[in-house]
Design a protein around this nucleic acid. Structure first.
Length: 779
DNA sequence: CAGTGAGCGAGCTTCCGCTTGACTT
């Protein structure tokens, strides 16, 4: 039995470290925290100096049991958890839960997993830093107090099962406020002017030059005046300016930047990125993926240098160290990087390979030379014109890091751009005007958050940690505060006015799609209500700076300048008083009266009902009468819906006519617009509008559905009618009870016998859906 | 899967941050 037991947080790390240490050392893992506050009484004895009451969670009992067994046999226990607040606390919890004596434990830390770093750490053990542990406990207790006192108020005042917390409530607030900015945004139109010029170069070839007017023109009148001046103007090249500049690579990945780039370049959700990164980490391809540090170890710097010199030559190498920008970074790990820089790619699943290559490129590029670029600016003017046209071009003189990697940006760049190579021109060159086009452009509202841009924002504000970004995003969706959605845009007209070579003006009206959005985070009505409610009663907790202020105090606890109890007392008692007071206020009402139905005089209002947002019509002269209800559509909000839009909702369900003696009804359901006839439903998602669909169209749709239904059944077995061969969206398949089974492709689907189908069904695993359901019902 | 919308008011829900797993019949 080994004399020494080393305990780290992650099992993958344990494996690596064990290979560096001799036979005298056994390395085990705690799998993160091993104790947590108990649930009852908030897990805090408030009257007794805010003493935390800890408990070993059910799923950690085995881990603790095993560690205890190992610890009893070892002479020394090396607590090698991460070098940050949480890591220090885990060490302390281990000491407590495993009942280790001070004599037996040695606390060690290392911020990179190399043999040298670990042997150095073993040489320099220390004791547990209790100030740091207290800072962690204060953090934990404060979060529990906020979460477990605020959430019940929401259950009481708004809706059961809601939640509030230091991190999630601010995340929701960001999304709510952004949505309101978008609602309040009034687009302004102005005209962007682009001129197309031509000239004959020294070789006698005709060349073209596109240039943009330096400013926007404000309206049609100004455009016409400007273009009429242009029609008689002589354009010349006023100036040619060449300016070299350098571009530097981005720092290697942290959790947050990895999530952003994987979303932009690979379209991964934040949780998918983390799942794949976890696999890469466990396979030993990359360093730890939950980190806020941009730092690379000396080992990594050397390895990157080697790889760059081998692959690209030494002029592509430039050693760089990066400084973290986020104020409360704990930097317990390195940046995310490949463990072996000479491994450019890996053979693994498509997803893992793509993410690995992204990490490799980013880390390699971070140690490469600047790119050298020359920017050319050509200014074009004419006598009598006060404005100039400008053409911009870029030429890469030395690619440097651009050879492997360029960071994407979040900007939704529509029309700016095309900065390519410009034709060779000299100052004073006369240009022929081919056309000048003024296109109406509208200012755009701020962009909705994506998962990744929300993570970026949270990180900037210092809210949340690398290990919680992905879970926070899924929590606010699970609670029904936020939806990831795709929105169809609306058509909008815009004007294009062109001056042609012959001096004539051409006016056109074109249409574009505006407001379409994909994969963005939309707040729900309940999110808006909850956010308003919390801001009204708990402004300090909803403040974007709240976490930053808490962090300052935690830092003071960590250096022994502030007492744990002192900090919690100062926070808790005023907070709790507000909680009590808020318990007495009236439930906030979500009702908005929109006006009167002009036909009946009934009052039209909207509110949040049990099953979601609803519009209702009530008879003011007969308050006893049952109101008429209509659910709001997904793209409508309580706070922005108009009377007209609400009145439209009552037009559905709409009787379109009669077919085969039965009513044909059009409506919008959970899965979009549909037609109902003879108790059968047909989706009319994209082709038709339920408000306008005619009886003829509806009959067409119904008949088409009948044809496809009749083709749906290839074979139903008499032996057991729950066994069916069906024609599905992806071709023929076997339906055996609730189980769907793929059929071998090499045979005619109708040729399968009942016995063959039973065998196929029994050989196939349950579908994911069912597994999930079983798990759920168990818990 | 195409609906509902109130009321008895049991007993439950909820936080953040650290880490991966997944019994057997």
């Amino acid at each position: 039995m080994a004399k020494n037991l080393v305990i780290v947080e992650s099992p993958a790390k344990a494996k690596t470290i064990e290979s560096y240490l001799g036979k005298e050392f056994l390395v085990a893992s705690s799998y993160g925290h091993i104790r947590d506050l108990e649930k009852k009484n908030k897990g805090i004895d408030i009257d007794n100096h805010f003493r935390p009451v800890y408990k070993i969670p059910e799923d950690k009992k085995n881990v603790v049991k095993e560690l205890k067994k190992l610890a009893q046999k070892a002479e020394a226990i090396w607590l090698a958890t991460d070098e940050d607040r949480e890591g220090e606390a885990i060490s302390w919890h281990l000491k407590e839960a495993l009942e280790l004596s001070d004599k037996k434990i040695k606390r060690i830390v290392f911020d990179e997993i190399t043999k040298k770093a670990i042997l150095d750490a073993i040489e320099n053990p220390r004791g547990i830093d209790y100030n740091l542990v207290n800072a962690q406990q204060a953090r934990r207790v404060l979060d529990r107090l906020v979460g477990f006192e605020l959430s019940p108020i929401l259950w009481k005042k708004i809706r059961t099962k809601l939640s509030a917390g230091r991190v999630q409530s601010v995340a929701v607030r960001l999304i709510v406020e952004r949505e309101r900015e978008i609602d309040a945004f009034v687009p302004e139109s102005r005209f962007k002017v682009v001129g197309l010029f031509s000239f004959v170069d020294e070789q006698g070839n005709e060349q073209q030059l596109k240039a943009e007017l330096a400013r926007f023109l404000k309206d049609e009148k100004e455009v016409e005046e400007f273009l009429s001046k242009c029609s008689t103007a002589d354009f010349i090249v006023e100036d040619v300016e060449k300016k070299p500049f350098k571009r530097s690579p981005a720092a290697p990945f942290t959790t947050s930047t990895l999530q952003q780039e994987a979303a932009r370049k690979l379209r991964y959700s934040v949780s998918r990125t983390m799942l794949i990164a976890q696999k890469l980490y466990e396979a030993g391809y990359i360093t730890y993926m939950r980190t806020d540090s941009v730092n690379l170890s000396d080992f990594a710097l050397d390895a990157a240098e080697q790889a760059i010199k081998n692959d690209f030559g030494s002029k592509y190498h430039h050693k760089r160290t990066y400084q973290t920008k986020s104020a409360n970074a704990q930097e317990a790990h390195e940046a995310i990087r490949p463990t072996d820089f000479s491994r450019e790619t890996i053979s693994a699943s498509k997803d893992e390979k793509a993410l690995y290559e992204l990490i490799w490129k980013r880390a390699i590029a971070s140690q490469m030379s600047d790119a050298e670029i020359e920017r050319t600016t050509i200014k074009i003017s004419a006598k009598g014109l006060s404005d100039q046209f400008t053409a911009k071009g870029e030429v890469i003189l030395f690619d440097g890091f651009l050879k492997v990697y360029l960071e994407d940006s979040d900007e939704e760049n529509g029309e700016n751009g095309e900065e390519g190579i410009l034709p060779p021109v000299k100052k004073g060159l006369k240009l022929k005007m081919e056309s000048i086009t003024a296109t109406e452009r509208f200012t755009r509202p701020p962009a909705r958050y994506t998962e990744a841009s929300l993570v970026k924002k949270l990180e900037e504000l210092g809210i949340g940690r690398p290990s919680t970004y992905a879970p926070t995003i899924s929590t606010i969706q699970k609670r029904g505060y936020v939806h990831k959605e795709e929105r169809q845009g609306k058509e909008r007209e815009y004007k294009v006015i062109s001056l042609l070579q012959n001096g004539k003006l051409k006016k056109e009206i074109k249409t574009e799609i505006t407001g379409a959005d994909k994969g963005k985070l939309f707040p729900t009505d309940i999110a808006m209500m909850v956010t308003d409610f919390l801001i009204e009663h708990f402004p300090e907790i909803m403040d974007y700076q709240f976490t930053a202020r808490v962090e300052e105090e935690l830092d003071e606890i960590a250096i022994g300048k502030l007492e744990y109890e002192e900090m919690l007392k100062e926070f808790y008692f005023p907070f709790h008083e507000k909680v009590e007071k808020t318990g007495e206020v009236e439930r906030p009402s979500s009702e908005r009266i929109l006006g009167k139905d002009p036909q009946t005089g009934w009052i039209v209002s909207v509110r949040l009902a049990r099953f979601g947002p609803v519009a209702q019509k009530t008879d003011p002269n007969n308050p006893e009468a049952k109101p008429i209800y209509a659910a709001l559509r997904k793209d409508q909000k309580l706070e922005t819906i108009t009377l007209e839009e609400a009145l439209d909702l009552f037009k559905l369900p709409r009787v379109v006519g009669e077919y085969e003696g039965k009513e044909v009804v059009a409506a919008i359901g959970r899965f979009g617009p549909y037609i109902r006839h003879d108790d059968k439903f047909v989706s009319i998602k994209k082709q038709f509008d339920p408000y306008t669909i005619t009886l003829e169209e509806a009959i067409q749709v119904i008949d088409a559905k009948r044809v496809s239904d009749s083709e749906k059944y290839i074979k139903v077995f008499d032996e057991d009618p729950s066994y069916q061969i069906l024609n599905g969206r992806w071709g023929p398949y076997l339906k055996a009870g609730k189980k769907n089974v793929k059929l071998p492709k090499d045979r005619e689907p109708s040729s399968f016998t009942f016995e063959e189908c039973v065998a196929l069904a029994n050989n196939t695993e349950e579908t994911k859906e069912k597994k999930k359901g079983r798990k759920k019902s168990k818990g």
